[in-house]
Design a protein around this nucleic acid. Structure first.
Ligand code: MN
Ligand code: MN
Ligand code: ZN
Ligand code: ZN
Lengths: 135, 135
DNA sequence: CGTGTTCATGAGAATCATTCTCGCATAAGC
DNA sequence: GCTTATGCGAGAATGATTCTCATGAACACG
């Protein structure tokens, strides 16, 4: 769980703290959440720094970002390979999933309509078993 | 192009104007954009009212909303049946597309992980032929 | 190790989309 | 027309995110 060395990226206590926290959590969390958690836990980090650290992690492909229905960004430590998410609306618990067919479909349907430089995003939302049990 | 009657929804000049404008446009537009367009065109509507009208249209299933990478909401008059979007990143031009297999896949993968009350969102982004030509 | 350069940090201000407030207008129903 | 619940609009409030800029600390180099 040591922070990966990324060229041109300076290693600081704050960035390590943000990444370490994300490593412990298994769901998507907002920057505000992460900032509050870090503050509670004692090793505090400025809010602006949390945002900057998260942006850097996203740029480096170590963290995925998802926009909630209210538009607030949520972040999660993710595997570096392409995948999609099955997310619990209630607690944020997330499972990485893959769907090879949709990859080909997206490319094909885009080509059929003359679209180039294609990307896609596919997310599945639901209520996880714990949250269903908790009512 | 007459505004559909929705029970319990009062018909006003402002709501008609918002829906009429959306009917002329074929891409996703932000509330701010739509407000500016209405103002230019003369039949102005208050900004708060644009937001309220759009929210009502979304609730009534007449309009789809999409969150851009910056988190800003964009709205589009869409068909009422379930579909996904192929969106031009540059000009916003949008094509409605369907992918029946992914519907089943989403339900199945969610069930396998014990998730209930499942929804999914799938969007494809690219550069349309016009925008590619315009370079 | 020092030391200097360069990049990072943090407190607060600024930005900006969206929502709220509340006094006034008006669509709908009779 | 008259009543009344709803909708409207201007401006204030909210809240996430970004910016500013003075200070702090990695890191490359000697
Ligand atoms: Mn994919
Ligand atoms: Mn679907
Ligand atoms: Zn859950
Ligand atoms: Zn285009």
């Amino acid at each position: 769980m040591t922070a990966p060395e990324v060229p041109g990226r300076r290693q600081t206590r704050q960035r390590s703290a943000v990444l370490a926290l994300l490593d412990e959590l298994d769901g998507f969390r907002t920057a505000q959440d992460l900032h509050a958690l870090l503050r509670e836990r004692g090793d505090a980090v400025g809010l602006a720094t949390v945002y900057r650290a998260l942006q850097a992690l996203v740029d480096d492909g170590l963290v995925d970002v998802l926009r909630g229905s209210d538009g607030e960004a949520a972040y999660r430590r993710c595997s570096p390979v392409h995948h999609h998410h099955l997310v619990c609306r209630s607690c944020g618990r997330t499972v990485e999933v893959a769907d090879p067919p949709v990859e080909r479909w997206a490319t094909r349907v885009a080509a059929e309509h003359g679209f180039a430089d294609v990307q896609h995003q596919l997310e599945v939302f639901g209520t996880c078993s714990s949250c269903t049990a908790a009512g």
